[in-house]
Amino acid sequence: MVDVFADLSSFSFEAGLSEEEKELIQLRARSAGLTVCGCAHAVFLCKLVRSLRCLIRSHAANGGSSGEDSDPCIGILGMGHIGKQLLLSLLEKSGIKPSHIKISSRRPESAVEFIQKGVECFFDNRRLAAWADVLFLCCLPSHLPRICADLYSRLPKRCLVYSFTSAVPVNRLAQLLGHDFILKPQYDFVARDPADVWLRCARPTAALNDPVLMEASCPLTMSGGISLGLNWVCAVLYSLLNICTSARLGSGDALSLINSVLKEKWPHSEELNTQSFISASYASSLLTEEPFPWISLPDAQTKETPLLCFLSSSKSMQQSISAAYKSLLETPAKPDAHSLM
């Protein structure tokens, strides 16, 4: 059927807007971009964690310290717009089994479609936090004080909290939760880049299959008017290091496994070493069988770290991380064969 209004500008959406109102149209693209990037970066983190846990489990089977199920336990606190889009993205792209994803929501009945897929939904924030390896905060800023008071000092040390709540800085969130394993993306807006690229797909799950949007959302080379930067990438790598420390791996084994995750996607990458993560003085006294010290992620995101200095000067490592990002998101999600046994 022919659209007889296709070439009539007076019937377009923008026709009835004033010049000032037209300038606000970019906010629609910006909102879509933040949703796409937020979901994509969360899926990337979960797939990195899953890959690392799989290597830790294989290492344990060969005489290592601790066996692990490669699927992390993923908790989503809040089922508003971002919570639902994140859940859909994880189910489609992460490869994590639905049974390893749980939701805490004041309205569990709103998640019937996900419950039918095997995702458990209830309203108990403490129960969710005690169970989760990765806990996504997808609540409104107005709800955050009550939630933090409920969870204060009750989060297991191993639980990585990932906050989508933009209004509260990561250091303040750490104080409210009494917890220092917190990752919070800090997105900035770049006016010179066209933002309408984010309107290519109506749903984030479709955007995660779009090569153009995957390129635009790559953390170290973002375009489309949104940027993220090295601090978030550093915090992701420090998260992997803490996971190794939590599994009681020696520093030598931790470095080997983390490098394996990255070099699998970019074989010519420069390798991370002890001084990439910690100061030279500390690194010189750290034995290979001794675990790395626990890293405070709020500090890693707000201060200059050895890893930030290393990544800033290593184009090879930046290429490796970008290659890992694109490869992990392009790879079809498949359940771990061992986890089904």
Rank of each mutant, 00 (worst) to 15 (best):
S281L: 07
P335T: 07
Y162F: 15
K97N: 08
I82D: 09
C159N: 08
A207W: 01
N62H: 06
S105G: 09
F123M: 01
I25S: 11
E215N: 13
Y238V: 08
T302I: 06
C234H: 00
A60M: 07
W131T: 03
A191I: 02
I243D: 00
A202G: 10
T288D: 13
C54F: 05
A42Y: 00
L87W: 02
Y238E: 07
S313D: 15
M222G: 12
C309M: 15
V119L: 06
C54D: 10
I76H: 06
I76P: 04
I258E: 04
S110N: 10
R126P: 00
A324T: 15
I82T: 13
V119R: 03
K157E: 11
E109L: 04
I321K: 11
W266Y: 15
L176G: 09
L90K: 08
K84A: 14
R127M: 08
L8E: 13
P335Y: 14
T165M: 10
A129H: 03
E21T: 04
A280N: 09
L24H: 11
G67S: 12
P169I: 02
A167I: 01
S9R: 12
I321A: 13
E330L: 14
G78W: 02
L311R: 03
M79V: 04
C39E: 07
L87Y: 04
L199E: 12
G16F: 08
A254F: 02
L86I: 08
L88W: 03
L329Q: 14
W232N: 15
V134K: 01
P141Q: 05
K303C: 14
R107L: 09
S31D: 11
I115W: 00
F181D: 05
D253W: 00
K263V: 05
